[in-house]
Nucleic acid binder design. Structure first.
Lengths: 257, 257
DNA sequence: GTCTATACAACGATAGAC
DNA sequence: GTCTATCGTTGTATAGAC
C-alpha cells in the first residue's frame, strides 16, 4: 500500500495505492481526526465520506461559495448542527480537502522518486501514474483546481510549489534523456508545462473526453506519445503493458499499432 | 477594425482588432446599452470600464461569488445604488462579461474563416491569433473559465460549443494538411484538444510563465512548433514574422534559431 | 452523537432624496 | 445620474434538548 510497483499498470497502481473504498476513507479520517469532535472511527468514517462526496457533488457543479451548508445538510442527510461535529467551519472543509489531496499526491510522488528508472521509463511512470491517480481522485483534483483562490494564502502557495516540483521531476527525467543522447529538447520548462496542462485537462474537461469516448488508458498513452514526439525520441516503444491494461479494462484503443 | 490582416503579427493583429482603450469599451457599451438605465455614452463608458475592471480585480483573485457588491462599490468608487444603473443584478454582470467575450471571440474567429490559407498558415494564424487575443483579454478569459459554473445553463452550453467549434477549425486544418501529404496525424481530436489546453494555460497559469520569464511571443511560437512536431511536419519554418514581432516588442526569444 | 431552534452578521436589491 | 438609507432574505455558526 505504500510502494510503487516496478511495472506501471492500472491494476498494479490500484493495488499499490488505495485511493477508494473503506480503507481510503479510513486514511482520510486518520489524517484529520484531530480537527473533529467525533472520535469513534466506525461512525465518523461513513459520515466523512458522505460529507466529502456531497461537497464534490454540489461544489463541482455550482461552486463551493455558491453551495450553502443548508444544501450540504440536505444532500448528506445530516443536520446543520450535526455537520459541525465534523468540519469546524465551511472554509475549513475546503482546506481539509486540499490538505488530503496534496498529502496523497506527495505520498505517491515520493514513492515514485525511490526508483532509479531510465529516463523514458521515468516519464512513462510519471504520466501514467498521474492519470491513474486522477482516475480515482478526479473530483478532488477538480475541486482543488477551481477553489484554490478561496483557500488560505499558505495553501495556495503550497499547491503552486507542488506543481513546480512536479515539473521539476519531469525536467530532470528529460534532462537525463538529453544527456544520454536519447532526447532532443531546447526548452524543457515549456515542455514540462505542456505535460502538466495535458494532464490537468483530464479532470478539467471530462465532458469533452466523455463526449468523444476517450478512455483513461488511451488518453495517458496519447500524452506519453506526444511527449516523446516533442523529445524527438527515435527508439521503439514497448507498449505491451499499456496494451494489456487497455484490453483487460475493455477500453478500445484507436491507432496505437 | 473588422478584418484579419494577411500576415499575422502582434502589431497587425492589434491594428485589426481594437481589444483595449476607449474604442473597445465603446463597443462593449454598444453591445449592452439595452440592459442599462444610463443612456449617455460619454458617462456610461467610463463607469462601465471601472466596473468591469474592478470586477476582474476582485473576482479573479477571490472568486466572483466571494466578491460582494459592497466590495465592488468600494473598488469602483460608485455607490451600491449607482451600480444598479449599470448592471441589473450581480449575476447579470457575470453573464454580460461572458457574452461580450464570446461575441468578441466569434467576431475574430469568423474573420479568420474568411481566408483560404494553406494548412500550415491556417494553424499558425489560429495559434497566434488566439494568443494575441488572450494577451489583451486575459482577465476576461480567466474570469469566464473560472466562473462558468455559476452562469445560466444556456451560456455554459454555448461556451462548450464554442470550444468544440474552435477545435473543429483546428481539425479541419490538420485534416487538410494530412490529405496534402504535409502532416501525419492519427488522432486529430486529441491533438486539437492538446492545442486548446496549451492555449488556455496562457491565461490559467500566468504566475508560472511570469516566474519563468516566458513572453507572449515565445509561448505562441512554442505551441506552434510543438504542434508541428506532433504532426511530423518536415518542411521549413518561416519565422521571419514572428522574429520581427519579438524584436520590435523587446521580447527575448530563447532557442528559436 | 445528533437534532431543533435560534442568534446575528452580511448580502443583494430597492425606494426616494438630491 | 448618483447618492443614502433601509428592507427582506439568506448565510454561517452555536446553544441546548434529547
Amino acid at each position: 500500500m505504500a510502494a510503487w510497483p516496478i511495472e506501471i499498470s492500472v491494476d498494479s497502481f490500484n493495488e499499490a495505492w488505495a485511493l477508494e473504498g473503506e480503507s481510503f476513507w479510513r486514511s482520510v479520517f486518520e489524517m484529520h481526526k484531530d480537527k473533529m469532535e467525533i472520535k469513534n472511527p466506525n461512525i465518523a468514517i461513513g459520515n466523512l465520506e458522505k460529507i466529502f462526496s456531497a461537497t464534490f457533488n454540489l461544489a463541482n457543479s455550482k461552486g463551493f461559495q455558491a453551495m450553502s451548508l443548508r444544501d450540504l445538510s440536505r444532500e448528506t442527510g445530516i443536520s446543520m448542527g450535526g455537520l459541525y461535529a465534523y468540519i469546524g467551519s465551511k472554509n475549513d472543509l475546503a482546506s481539509v480537502i486540499e490538505g488530503v489531496l496534496r498529502n496523497t499526491i506527495e505520498q505517491i510522488s515520493g514513492g515514485l522518486a525511490a526508483y532509479d528508472l531510465e529516463p523514458i521509463e521515468s516519464l512513462r511512470a510519471i504520466v501514467f501514474g498521474e492519470i491513474y491517480a486522477m482516475e480515482k481522485l478526479s473530483p478532488w483534483y477538480y475541486f482543488c483546481f477551481m477553489e484554490l483562490k478561496g483557500l488560505p494564502r499558505e495553501q495556495q502557495q503550497q499547491t503552486l510549489e507542488l506543481e513546480l516540483r512536479f515539473e521539476g521531476i519531469l525536467m530532470n527525467a528529460i534532462q537525463a534523456g538529453v544527456e544520454a543522447g536519447q532526447f532532443v529538447c531546447d526548452q524543457p520548462e515549456l515542455l514540462a508545462s505542456q505535460v502538466t496542462a495535458q494532464l490537468q485537462q483530464w479532470h478539467l474537461k471530462q465532458w469533452k473526453f466523455k463526449l468523444r469516448d476517450i478512455g483513461t488508458q488511451a488518453y495517458a498513452q496519447f500524452v506519453f506519445e506526444t511527449l516523446l514526439k516533442c523529445l524527438e525520441y527515435q527508439g521503439e516503444l514497448d507498449k505491451s503493458v499499456a496494451a494489456k491494461d487497455a484490453s483487460s479494462a475493455g477500453v478500445e484503443r484507436s491507432a496505437v499499432a
